[in-house]
Lab assay of single mutants.
Amino acid sequence: MQRVNMIMAESPGLITICLLGYLLSAECTVFLDHENANKILNRPKRYNSGKLEEFVQGNLERECMEEKCSFEEAREVFENTERTTEFWKQYVDGDQCESNPCLNGGSCKDDINSYECWCPFGFEGKNCELDVTCNIKNGRCEQFCKNSADNKVVCSCTEGYRLAENQKSCEPAVPFPCGRVSVSQTSKLTRAETVFPDVDYVNSTEAETILDNITQSTQSFNDFTRVVGGEDAKPGQFPWQVVLNGKVDAFCGGSIVNEKWIVTAAHCVETGVKITVVAGEHNIEETEHTEQKRNVIRIIPHHNYNAAINKYNHDIALLELDEPLVLNSYVTPICIADKEYTNIFLKFGSGYVSGWGRVFHKGRSALVLQYLRVPLVDRATCLRSTKFTIYNNMFCAGFHEGGRDSCQGDSGGPHVTEVEGTSFLTGIISWGEECAMKGKYGIYTKVSRYVNWIKEKTKLT
């Protein structure tokens, strides 16, 4: 034993070699072989497995989906700052455009905790909710729209109204504003409101030439003092309507412009014939205590009207009353817009006519005020429907199939267009061939041609 100890002390290297040989010859039971080890760690190889990531292109799944990435790591994937920024906006807080917040056709661009709407022409605001041009839906104005110097929408209202708090709607500024039905039992019968379409306001006024200088022999019209197929109006439903009495009662109609003036057809009036105007009328054979009678003290036909040349060209006249009318729910003026808007309103496509005229061709006159909704007829169809001249200051309205029309005794009465609950004068009943005849239409004086003249002559002093 002493000898062994001496050998170990003198030859430590020998001992180490012996131990190493023993270990190498022993069977290893701690580690699995290569094949079995792979069965336990069965993990798919990654895209760049075996390579240094710093030297390969980034992978979106590896960089940002398996674990949260930084902007720089995302930049490695896209290799483009702009594309990385677009991805980053949604990656950080989701897609803010998912709810489609942009209105009126706006395009949404996502941002971090926010979004941006790219608005089409005519709109602005956070969600493109603000109209900035009158060309689109009248700028959301209830009545009139004008573009300011910086191309912003400025709404306005006709006389007797003021802008509401929203700067879009119009509200009454006087007790009985024009064009409004205020009798409670008839307010439910107000005709369907007309909503502004998209309009090209630059070209809204037709490029028409008034044929002022045409000389033409007097034409022989049949029954051209021209509501057939209409309905009984309720008291106060058309408070701007008046009836004219002269040699015979209810020979023509008219509309209240203001307390002192009536507008009617020029062919209705004769110099030297006494005319009485009755406002607030409903049943011409009954006294309903809503009527107001006034005498006409002055007749002003349009300066281009000449019955000797043509009885229905420039067929418009103004009547001055001896005493002002007292405005109330049964006696209310009709609204008159400017030339541009009167023309736009007419193009809405349908209007209402009213009167006490004959209820059928050569038949009896109506006792109760009649009204009828009539569609506008395109000019080409209008011209083809008659052998008589249709001037540019006239328009056609009615039904091709016949059966409904204005008729004798309705002449001078109103053709009105309702705009968001307020009625505007767009025409004056003038003439036609018979009444409600198939293929024939009622012919009306186009008020847009005469609004400046009306307003100039009827100013209240």
Score class of each variant (00 low, 15 high):
Q2F: 09
R3T: 07
M6R: 15
M8T: 14
E10G: 15
S11E: 05
L14K: 03
I17N: 02
L20I: 08
G21N: 09
G21Q: 05
Y22P: 02
Y22Q: 09
S25L: 13
A26V: 12
A26N: 03
V30H: 14
V30Q: 15
A37V: 13
N38M: 07
I40F: 11
I40C: 05
L41T: 08
L41R: 09
N48K: 10
N48P: 15
S49A: 05
L52K: 12
E54A: 09
V56I: 11
E61I: 07
R62Q: 15
R62E: 08
R62T: 13
M65W: 08
E66Q: 07
E67N: 09
S70V: 09
S70H: 08
E73T: 08
V77C: 06
T81M: 08
E82Y: 06
F87Q: 15
V92N: 08
D93A: 07
D95I: 06
N100R: 09
P101W: 02
L103I: 09
C108E: 00
D110G: 12
D111P: 01
I112S: 11
Y115P: 01
Y115R: 03
C117V: 00
C119R: 00
P120I: 04
F123T: 05
N135V: 10
I136L: 09
N138D: 04
N138E: 04
F144Y: 07
F144R: 01
N147P: 10
S148V: 08
S148T: 13
A149V: 13
S156R: 08
G160K: 02
G160V: 01
Y161E: 01
R162S: 10
L163A: 03
S169Y: 06
V174T: 11
P175K: 13
F176W: 08
F176C: 04
P177L: 01
R180S: 05
V183K: 10
V183P: 11
Q185I: 12
Q185C: 06
S187D: 12
K188P: 15
L189F: 13
T190C: 05
A192H: 08
E193D: 14
E193K: 10
P197F: 10
D200V: 13
Y201N: 14
V202Y: 12
E208N: 10
E208G: 05
I210D: 14
I210S: 14
I210W: 12
N213C: 04
T215Q: 09
Q216T: 10
S217F: 12
T218R: 10
T218S: 13
F224L: 15
F224Q: 06
R226M: 12
E231C: 10
P239L: 01
V243H: 06
V243K: 10
L244V: 06
N245W: 06
N245F: 05
K247C: 05
V248I: 13
V248Q: 13
D249L: 08
A250L: 09
G253C: 11
W261G: 00
I262Q: 00
T264M: 02
T264Y: 01
A265E: 00
A265G: 04
A265I: 00
A266I: 01
V273R: 13
V273P: 10
V273D: 08
T276Y: 05
N283I: 09
E286F: 10
K293D: 03
N295D: 13
V296M: 02
R298N: 15
A308H: 09
Y312C: 04
Y312L: 07
N313K: 11
N313Q: 13
N313C: 06
A317C: 05
E320G: 02
E323R: 05
L325P: 00
L325F: 11
V326R: 09
S329C: 04
V331R: 01
I334P: 01
I334Y: 01
D338F: 03
E340M: 08
N343C: 03
N343F: 03
F345H: 02
L346E: 04
K347H: 10
K347T: 11
K347E: 10
S350Q: 13
G351S: 07
Y352D: 03
S354L: 15
H361F: 08
R364Q: 09
L369P: 14
L369A: 14
Q370Y: 03
Q370C: 05
V374W: 04
V374D: 01
V374R: 04
L376C: 02
R379N: 04
T381K: 06
R384V: 07
T389W: 13
I390A: 08
Y391G: 14
M394Y: 04
F395M: 01
F395R: 02
A397T: 05
H400D: 14
E401G: 10
S406M: 14
S411R: 14
S411P: 09
S411Y: 14
E418C: 06
T422R: 03
T422M: 03
T426E: 00
G427S: 00
G432C: 10
G432S: 13
E433W: 05
E434N: 13
A436I: 12
A436N: 12
M437S: 11
Y441F: 09
G442Q: 13
G442T: 14
Y444H: 03
T445E: 02
K446R: 09
V451P: 00
W453G: 00
T461N: 15
